[in-house]
Design a protein around this nucleic acid. Sequence first.
RNA 1: GCUUCCAUAGCUCAGCCGGUUAGAGCAUCUGACUGUUAAUCAGAGGGUCCUAGGUUCAAGUCCUAGUGGGAGCGCCA
Length: 478
Amino acid sequence: MAKRTKIKDILKGGFEGQEVTVKGWVKTFRNNQFIALNDGSSMSNLQIVVDFENEDPSKLKRITTSAAISIEGTVIASQGKGQAFEVTAKTIEILGDSDPEKYPLQPKKHSLEFLREIAHLRFRTNTFNAVFKIRHHLAIAIHQFFHEKGFVYMHSPIITGSDAEGAGEMFKVTTLPFDKTPRTEGGEVDFKKDFFGKATNLTVSGQLEAELAALAFSEVYTFGPTFRAENSNTSRHLAEFWMIEPEVAFADIHDNMDLAEALLKYTISHVVENCPEELAFLEQRLSDEEKQKPQHERSDMTLRDKLNFCVNNEFQRLTYTEAIEILKNSNPNKKGKFQYPINEWGADLQSEHERYLVEKHFNKPVILTNYPKEIKAFYMRMDDDNKTVAAMDILFPGIGEIVGGSQREERLDKLMARMDEMHIPHHELEWFLDTRRFGTCPHAGFGLGFERLVLFVTGMTNIRDVIPFPRYPGSAEF
RNA sequence: GCUUCCAUAGCUCAGCCGGUUAGAGCAUCUGACUGUUAAUCAGAGGGUCCUAGGUUCAAGUCCUAGUGGGAGCGCCA
């Protein structure tokens, strides 16, 4: 095949006067003369100038929106105003036709809901080009951050034999036939006959496995798909999502907060530096959206303002107890504006409370720590007061909880006592308890929801629009 | 799972108090134009008004149920 020059490189300059071959998909074909060509290397299109008077009219008719074409031609300084360079076509080859009567995308704004229904084609839009480029850069930045710090990237299993991870409903993994499942004498499903010889599920968290590795490598992280079979119907939950879970030995909750804050700032500023074109586009998109909203709901910060603000300011750290005091004395609580009024210590915080703290009271990312033990998981380290645990949640404006983590309970007796209180059978987790038997040490970690980070950085509002093929209740298309 | 809003052309939407043959912009097709920038201009085609019941002389419009979608809530990352 003829060597292809990427459109991104041509637009950068330095090709003037050269013969090139470019390939891509037609965005628009104007005036029977100008092709806007895109190959995905850049959000910007390359203008191809066609000598229509000397070109086969039947071929010109096949240059339709989203047709794949190959052009040989010369790079010249553009005679038009919209771009610095363009290519005058010498030969045009149609690689793949696109029937304009049937192709659903037009050169105009489409609703995100419509594009979600044609997720296989939405990659060809500017918005999703930008979103998935940023998603890529965030993933790379995460690996880079941990690699530079000497963390070991650990692959935790996707199929798990443990049903005690405690992070929600799980998807069953089985090869047993549904119509005639083998039964034990007691009438229960006999999982001894199943593929793994036991009941298995898709993982809801790689944390417990990451802890095992952390107590050997000191610093590890996982980054992989995670599954929750919850019937969650919101703009920030998915049934299949990607999660980053670092786990660090010889670290306490403060080290944990420092790590999470540094990770978020590093990845966000990586995107600010490396994706200026994509951010500029999404910023414009967002401000157009905001113009549709009533005045009081509009944000006075642009997307890049928000990102820079987040990078340049300390996250607000406070304890659950302090947060309850603020909420108790807040105007909306006094005026009865909260759907769930805050009366006493111990109440679980609702999203209206989190939003008040983050978006109204502090107006910046907030790290909440030391929650009551009753509303947190069994593995979190008990504080000296025996009432709270060393948990930490990071709350972001517009997103809510983006990180959930804790210092882990490293003391065997205390850990087992908590398991008993929460009715978690020890035999399921003997392997986990072994880490507390053989060289236990203080350690901490957290889970970062990757799509929630992508949501924040792109300024998108529905999590289904920041993962290529979203899975949620009632939907597993493509 | 709960609350609430929505469903009319390929897309985005209008359609008044229930009353004639359901409209617009964009897209598509035909023609014109030929340095355009979501090109422009002229014309044409395009409808199971989500589905099923019901009320009524008459339903896109009102009622009930279902389906699908959005937003909010819960579960959480």
